[in-house]
Amino acid sequence: MQSPIELEISRRNLIVSSAAAVAVTGVAGKAAAQPAGRAMNLTTKLSFTVNGERRELDVDNRTTLLDALREHLHLTGTKKGCDHGQCGACTVMVDGRRVNSCLSLAVMHDGDQVTTIEGLGEPGNLHPMQAAFVKHDGFQCGYCTPGQICSSIAVIEEIKANIPSHVTGDLTAQAQMTAHEVRERMSGNICRCGAYSNILDAISEVAGIKA
């Protein structure tokens, strides 16, 4: 596909002309910094690694990891679906574990390693899970997709690491790589387009689960 990115560029030009008339006021994050009763700030500096790259930010303490990624680092592949931990669209990996980035403060991730969808692969060089999602059409609108893919990769690792799930039969035995297990473990990622059956096919291919 000749991507809409070309369009993005032409639109950018269009917008730039309008920006010339606008005075830039304020810098994100700083405006909230007012001294509290205690000698502490409402903003905090942090340094973390995102997709292998060291990033420094000075953020409003209220900034979630999700908004730090999307609004500060412009890594908008991680999606805001509900902002309340009810949909999973914001799933990223922190120090190798999947979490909802909407329910975590950026300031609590100083020193952490964060991997987002952008860190897994890119057009022309897809991660095997991304390729499997394309092949099996494991998405429609695409909005939950980055979260689904991050979760999918984590789920395979979690099963291998013998982390049990709600549907694990014998808690004392090694967790099994089955469709039933994958469905349960993926349930924190809602897809309203209803691509679940195809997502399972994509994960099954990567995980080696027989249909």
Binding site: R98, V99, N100, L103, S151, E158, P164, S165, R185, G188
Partner: peptide, 16 residues
């Protein structure tokens, strides 16, 4: 205890 925990929330939330 293990069963109750695993019945709650989602994998992502349980990780945090």
């Amino acid at each position: 205890l293990s069963r109750a925990l695993l019945a709650g929330a989602s994998g992502q939330l349980r990780n945090k």
